[in-house]
Every structure is written in C-alpha cells, then in structure tokens.
Design a protein around this nucleic acid. Sequence first.
DNA 1: ATAAATAAGTTTATATTATAAACTACATTA
DNA 2: TAATGTAGTTTATAATATAAACTTATTTAT
Lengths: 95, 95
Amino acid sequence: MSDFKPLDPLLHSQLRLAIMSLLLSVKSAEFTFIKEKTEATAGNLSVQLDKLSSAGYIEIEKSFRDKKPLTTCKITKKGVSAFEAYVSALKDYLN
Amino acid sequence: MSDFKPLDPLLHSQLRLAIMSLLLSVKSAEFTFIKEKTEATAGNLSVQLDKLSSAGYIEIEKSFRDKKPLTTCKITKKGVSAFEAYVSALKDYLN
DNA sequence: ATAAATAAGTTTATATTATAAACTACATTA
DNA sequence: TAATGTAGTTTATAATATAAACTTATTTAT
C-alpha cells in the first residue's frame, strides 16, 4: 500500500498551480494580469487557461474593452475544492 | 515581476518527489522498498532514480544479496538542500 | 491612404518528460 | 530442462509543457 496519494496532474504543473493560486486570492483576474504575475508567455498561458477551464476549475469570460479583447478568469467551486485536495495530498510528500 | 519562484523541475514530479520524501525519512532504502511504497513500476522507478542520482540528489549503491542484485539509495546533502528549497518555493503557490 | 507598430490573444509545432512495455541476467523450482 | 520468479535496465510511446508563428483588430506614423 502506498503512502502517497496521487497528485491531480492538472494542478501539479508550475504554471497552472500559479494561475490557481492567483485566482484564489482575487474575485477575478484578467489575462494580462495573470500573464504579468506568472511571467508566462501568452501562448502558454492561453493553453493552460483552456485546460483549467475544460476541467471546470475556472470560468473564462471573453468580452471587449477599449475595442480590445478582454479575457477574464474566475476560479470555480470545483476549482477551489480541487486545489484544496491537491494541497492536502501534497502534504504527505513534504513531511 | 513574478510572485512565483520557479520550481525545481527535477523535484516537481510526483514520483521523484515521493522518492525524495521517502529517502528523507530513512538512512537508506532499497529499490524494492521504494517500489512498494511509491507503487511505481520498476522501469519508471529505475529511470527516476537515475535522474535523481545524475543530479547528485541521491546516491545509489549496487551490490548483491542472496545472489540477487540489490540497489540501495540514500539522499545526499545536496538533495536535502534542493528538497528544502523546493518546499520553500512551493509555499508561495499554496498561500 | 497605407504601412508599420501595438495589443490581446490563439493555434500549431517542437522539445521535454513521464511512463510502461519489452528485455536482460541470473536463480530457483517443478 | 523448461518454466517461474526476482531485480532490475533499456527503449519505445504517450502525454505535457512551452514557445514560435500566426490571427484579428487598433492605433500611430509617413
């Protein structure tokens, strides 16, 4: 029997974890804000946001501001739960 | 400027993290013991142990017992430091 | 008016990584 | 001596992360 619970592979990724961590601390965040905070490239960020969204961990709203596209992200209840479960599982690995 | 320090990719891996976590809590551990505790396949374990060893995070000793190969692993000082740095960096992601 | 630069992303191609399947070597048992 | 088990290693493949190239639209300069 293993001492180690599996770690949600969707969260066990540096960038996605950073995104989720950010989103936990705010009501919502814009693409460009997340990009600055995580120092990710736009392409990478776009892909990872899609994955989190597909999993139902975040909600993405696309609109326009000043005639420019505006992508706004928000963590979901499911995302919060998944994050908490991940942190809890991770603790066994960190002693 | 980023709020998130990079996570050592060698440690940010479920299996390698489990291996390091195990090795932190014992003087040394045998291949088969680590295999049972982590529930990894022998192939995967072999590869990941090699990576940790190449990085200088663990030391691997190969011998024989009862005429059978015996692989024994031990965490190094460098490995302990790396693990501690990883945990410290990770904390910023977990709030 | 049109060419160049900027902004906000997305899509796609590539490099890296994780993982298991297949294999090796040797010992034991039927 | 043929099959089974033990303890791994090597290699092939699947999955993942990442950046480069691209798209669409806007603003600014010529």
